[in-house]
């Protein structure tokens, strides 16, 4: 099993955390991983992208240029998602912010209203965790069943109160794509 995911959004949407938690969970599930982020020089608002691969085998090129799955968190990233998705791949769209579907009739488009679900849970910043739940459900590549034990080491101590909220967001993300 190899799942190559391309993640794209703007800085501050938690793309980097999403990718890191995805591969951290995968490692705990016994998989090989690579996570290669690239972003603009700005701390907020620039591009934020990541090549993320989880696999049961040794990972060759760490650059995702033909993605099995693509996560698109904002409208500006739709164009790159259209380019990077492999034929017949899956594009998960943050439908709260993206109104028109990517122009890839061959791909499976999955709508996840990440921001709406996050706001309903009380914090828009966990929209990335909603997306991770959806990615888990749609690809099945990472189970995320060890997430609860991972999060305490991932968050700084003053943010540990947010752990249950993050878990809830992941669960809601899974539910949003199970129908």
């Amino acid at each position: 099993m190899t799942e190559k995911t391309f993640m794209a959004g703007f800085g501050g949407q938690g793309i980097i955390s999403l990718g890191q938690l995805w591969v951290y969970s995968a490692i705990k599930e016994g998989l090989k991983v690579t996570f290669f982020p690239f972003y603009g020089a700005e701390k907020r608002g620039g591009i934020a992208r990541a090549s993320v691969i989880v696999s049961s085998d040794e990972i060759k090129s760490p650059i995702v240029t033909s993605a099995d799955s693509v996560v698109v968190m904002n409208q500006d990233s739709v164009e790159i998602a259209e380019k990077v998705c492999r034929k017949g791949g899956t594009i998960l769209v943050n439908s709260s912010l993206i109104k028109a579907d990517p122009a890839r009739p061959d791909a499976k488009i999955v709508h996840v209203p990440c921001n709406d679900i996050a706001l309903k849970l009380g914090d828009v910043r966990i929209a990335n965790m909603v997306m991770m739940g959806a990615l888990c459900k749609v690809t099945g590549a990472v189970k995320l069943d060890k997430l609860e034990s991972i999060l305490p080491s991932f968050f700084s101590s003053n943010k540990r109160s947010l752990i249950s909220l993050n878990i809830a967001a992941v669960e809601e993300g899974k539910k949003a794509v199970s129908g």
Binding site: Q20, K32, V33, T34, F35, F36, I59, P62
Partner: peptide, 9 residues
């Protein structure tokens, strides 16, 4: 720069 910035197990 890729090896420096990349995360792996």
């Amino acid at each position: 720069g890729l090896i420096g910035q990349m995360m792996e197990g």
